[in-house]
Design a binder for these strands. Structure first.
Lengths: 351, 351
DNA sequence: CTGTTAGCGCTTTCAC
DNA sequence: GTGAAAGCGCTAACAG
């Protein structure tokens, strides 16, 4: 017994004949274009429904024959996670070019709202779509809305601006990510009681703030024996993070867990390393951070880091492109496919 | 400053002109078809290289105009994970039909090698591609090789037959999955010592055997305080799993961890539930299993189950289709995209 | 409001 | 060995 999931192929012409109209009229109805009498519309739609007709995407794409340009507005700095996204976009070159798509990187300072807003405003209407790693700020929101009004499709990437009219967000639920980090640390300290440190880039960044929020939620409700210390703001810089953390570790002997919310991982690891000399086995401090980079991979393998909460950068890069393309073509977005998951990565399931 | 990742579009005709030949000849070279003089080939290839020319996939697809049929050979039983894969294939119906692709389900008894082999042999040469949840057995291997010889593209799904000549495997590394389960249990028992139970479907199934292998590796090397008990074989059946496990729990009072390798989760949970009445908080037995289903989702939320090792069924369904399609068209496979990850799912990062 | 028609960039006969 | 030419199924002018 076999069950067919898809019917066999019809063409526009078949529908046209069946509805007693011409090709062009079917095309108009198919794309909700004006200039068709209501009952003609009904007749054509009926024929389409009846045959569950699906236009051939390849033919449509070819006939439309338009190349599309997308811009990716991303931080210019040395953030390894962003560099990974860029690298994965680079790997798509052949795929893109076989579809007559182009992707251009627009580096900018995403930490400065006015600079970011200016970068967005500067994108002439030359782009069909824009992906942006966005700071949640009124100026940025306005710039995004302007792009949308100008007809561009806009997706936010990694960091969202929910109050804007962006068409889609490609990234994780950061509150849930923080909760996951909290649950991991809580479980992995194994019943010890003590203090937990948090190092973040800045609480002004929406994603960082959300992660901390989720983390504290879980800590408060599920691990009352653990005492969360005030957040250290390391600005995602190695030196500053190291210094602040080293100080804190010096002041508190009973820190059993550490949550590194953003980057600056090198510095965090150094500060830990200095203290780790006095520790062994089960008494080890539990260290959870974000993202799988060359550095965090090494730290996981060495056992310095216990888990990384990660969002798959390759998936994010491809999802952003696919979503922009679907939006530009007016095709449906496969939400299930484009959803970014919160990955827990430990030594044994390193990708 | 903007950086373009993709050049602008050329067509076959441009290449033809540049190489001083006709369209047809460029096409022949492009697809390594015979009947072109070696130095003509060279000249054309040079022109293609020089312009890093990429043929327009939509045009190619349209001109080829061939519909493609894929078969999915999968277990007929009530296995919820397999049903999820089927459901996700169903959700692709519109996507498939817009590309003139069809997917047909071929239910079979994948646990009986001769039945499975017969199902495979019975697939006439009507299919361009076949995805199969395979048992690793000589008869099955032979059947797969026959399909390959007959010109079909073959991918193994979820469970591999590495010794066959299948073109691709869509699924996780089960040894690493078992290691991950071991590391989780080891870490989550939090320094207690005691015994660890394993419930599997059958050690004859390659994926189950590999998971157990990886699990034992980690246990032996990293958690010497934990004593792994002999594997219970529940045949993925609820009743049998419950009964065996209840017995075991009765005999050993100091079981601190449980690894459920396959299905039969309902039975496992029942056996645990009976015993859990006597337990509280930190003394709770650590329970790790596989896959996110309606049941395991509930168990995770209730705190009965601590983590699920999972492979994303939606991703597996789509990856299998995309890989078959790429193979059929002779396009490259995006390995990074099609790779199935080992997901660790806990309460807070439930998808 | 509706229909006719010329392509889009490849693939595939069929001739030479 | 190589080339010319007829489509593939849809879109977008342009007529009517």
């Amino acid at each position: 017994m076999t069950e067919t999931l898809t019917p066999t192929a019809l063409t526009l012409k078949d529908i046209a004949r069946e509805a007693g109209v011409s090709l062009a009229t079917v095309d108009r109805v198919l794309h909700n274009r004006p200039g068709v009498r209501p009952d003609t519309v009904r007749r054509v739609k009926a024929a389409i429904e009846r045959n569950s007709f699906q236009p051939h995407v390849a033919a449509a794409e070819l006939a439309r024959g338009r190349a599309r340009r997308f811009a990716f507005v991303m931080p210019s700095g040395p953030n390894p996670f962003m560099q990974q996204i860029e690298a994965y976009l680079g790997e798509m070159a052949a795929w893109l070019s076989a579809r007559r798509l182009s992707v251009e990187m627009v580096p900018t300072d995403v930490f400065d709202p006015s600079v970011l807003a200016a970068s967005l405003e500067a994108l002439s209407d030359a782009y069909d779509g824009v992906a942006v790693v966005a700071l949640d700020h009124p100026g940025v929101r306005a710039a995004i809305n302007d792009l949308v009004d100008a007809g561009a499709k806009v997706v936010t990437l990694v960091s969202d601006v929910p109050s804007s009219r962006r068409h889609h967000y490609v990234g994780i639920d950061n509150i849930a990510a923080g909760r996951t980090a909290g649950a991991l640390i809580g479980r992995l300290v194994g019943g010890r009681s003590g203090k937990v440190a948090i190092v973040a880039g800045s609480q002004g960044l929406r994603d960082h703030a959300e992660r901390i929020f989720g983390f504290n939620q879980v800590m408060a409700s599920e691990f009352p024996d653990l005492n969360v210390l005030p957040v250290l703001e390391g600005r995602d810089e190695d030196d500053r993070s190291e210094q602040l953390l080293a100080q804190l570790l010096g002041r508190h002997a009973d820190i059993v867990g550490l949550y590194n919310v953003g980057a600056g991982t090198q510095g965090v690891a150094k500060a830990l390393n200095d203290r780790a000399l006095n520790e062994t086995g089960r008494d080890k401090l539990v260290f959870v951070g974000h993202d799988v980079t060359a550095l965090t991979r090494r730290l996981l393998l060495q056992g310095v880091m216990d888990a990384a909460i990660s969002q798959n950068p390759g998936h994010e890069a491809r999802a952003a492109v696919r979503v922009l393309l679907a939006l530009a073509r007016g095709e449906p977005i496969l939400r299930e496919q484009e959803k970014i998951r919160i990955d827990i990565v430990m030594r044994d399931n390193l990708p």
